[in-house]
Design a protein around this nucleic acid. Structure first.
Length: 401
RNA sequence: GGGGAGAUGGCCGAGCGGUCAAUGGCAGCAGACUGUAAAUCUGCCGGCGUACGCCUACGGAGGUUCGAAUCCUUCUCUCCCCA
């Protein structure tokens, strides 16, 4: 097996990376591996407590893919055991604990989605319950004795929670230790993770040292902000772009990011290289391009990544139709009326509004259109057999035939 | 074991006997405008009723009061200090 030059490897590895600790050890490891023709073991842990992946997860997955492309040995650790603990990282409260069965189902869909990004043939997948489940209480006491509370409290989120007087359960301290044991078990050379994982990744180094292993190098990637441009992308904030989203949604959601996020998305979500980033930066800086055009480019690129160029082009066309030409889409839900019905009731029962109150409010605000005509009568009744297209806001439609 | 503080709407966070369906910020929704689902401005933002109204809500359960998110008792949970 031959590897690209060290500099070439480093360039790709560093692309979009937040931190590499310590960088000179990475270089050493790369040199060693190149000399011996021995690939590095690169570990990425994933949390199967949620089944849906989004492009935030994809940042780390693509980084892992980079290592695969360089000829290294990628290992995806499914944290089915650690999911039972519930990683508190970046959270301000304890995560719900899941059972092994629950995580198993999630893990399968996770792998299925990760396939789109990773080279599945050369990927090693393992479950950390395989070794963590074997440990007994005295083993746990033993590794727990290797770490002090003061060190645990260095972790930012623990510190914050402690300061803000929110609960920290003892078992949460075990999470970093468990994750570190994964590194020991795999004798990992490099571990990847989001910036919120930095502490956990560093614990891996400590435990490896305890076990007489060469310490892993850690590489963190930024956590991408969600489509609101404010919070970290997360399903629970409802600001995520899911890997299994339809191409239309994926395109549309990308178009909805604030302008300030354009650069970041290109770098983290679209894999833009240095030259491309430079171009984008200068275009944004000198205003030689309408930011909208960059977003189109971005959206097209992202959809292409997860689907195909043709699908992406179709998604773009779909978007233009609806949002620029404001055409009513083809595939809207349709119903037939068997009786006269109040408009408010109809849009409520078909989930176009969350409550009848909201429906009335929207009608008052002129947000409801019947066949493209504003309807301002909150008592509007639709007659049986009437054919009409109802539009609530810009995106909610119902066809009555 | 002892002493103290606290639990408020999706989140953060005011309120501390009536005027509280509860200030404000964030998120969300809509309208205008536009470059799009960007930015900005405006409006809405518990439910049910066409307005007055009714119901449900301020950790749970009781109680005091004409009246409680606000006071009392108790339970659950959290935090701090001392041992």
């Amino acid at each position: 097996m031959s590897f690209p030059s060290i500099d070439k490897q480093l360039t790709l590895i560093k692309q979009g990376a937040e931190e590499i600790i310590p960088e000179d050890e990475l270089r050493d490891k790369l040199e060693q591996s190149r000399k011996n023709g021995q690939p590095l073991v690169v570990k990425l842990g994933c949390d199967p407590s949620r089944p849906d992946l989004h492009i935030g997860h994809a940042v780390a997955l693509r980084k892992l893919r980079h290592f695969q492309d360089l000829g290294h040995h990628a290992v995806l650790v499914i944290g089915d055991f650690t999911a039972m603990i519930g990683d508190p990282s970046g959270r301000n409260k304890t995560r719900p604990q899941l059972t092994l069965e629950e995580t198993k189902v999630n893990a399968e869909s996770y792998i299925d989605q990760a396939k789109v990004i990773l080279d599945i043939d050369s990927l090693k997948i393992c479950y950390n319950s395989d070794w963590l489940n074997q440990m007994n209480f005295s083993d746990v006491v033993n590794i727990a004795s290797k770490y002090t509370v003061a060190r645990m409290m260095e972790r930012d989120d623990f510190k914050k929670r402690y300061k803000s007087e929110t609960a920290i359960s003892i078992h949460e301290f075990l999470y970093p230790l468990a994750q570190a044991m994964d590194s020991v078990h795999l004798d990992a050379d490099i571990e990847l993770g989001g910036t919120d994982q930095k502490f956990n990744l560093l614990v891996g180094r400590d435990l490896q040292r305890e076990h007489g292993q060469e310490e892993q190098v850690i590489l963190t990637v930024p956590l991408i902000e969600g489509t609101d441009g404010v919070d970290k992308m997360s399903k629970s904030y409802d600001n995520h772009i899911g890997l299994t989203d339809t191409p239309e949604d994926m395109y549309g959601k990308t178009m909805s990011i604030p302008d300030t996020m354009i650069e970041r998305y290109f770098l983290l979500a679209a894999n833009a290289d240095e030259a491309e980033m430079k171009r984008i930066q200068s275009q944004l800086a000198d205003k030689s391009i309408n930011p909208r055009e960059l977003k189109r480019e971005l959206a097209l690129e992202i959809v292409t990544m997860y689907y195909s160029a043709e699908t992406a082009a179709a998604a773009e066309q779909h978007f233009d139709q609806i949002f620029i030409h404001k055409v009513i889409p083809e595939d809207i839900p349709g119903i037939t009326l068997d009786d006269d019905v109040a408009l408010v009731d109809l849009i409520f029962t078909h989930n176009l509004v969350a409550s009848k109150s909201e429906g009335r409010r929207l009608i008052d605000q002129g947000a409801v259109k019947l066949n493209d005509l504003k309807c301002s009568d909150r008592d509007q009744v639709l007659k049986k057999g009437e054919k009409i297209v109802i539009k609530v806001g810009k995106r909610r439609f119902l066809k009555v035939t």
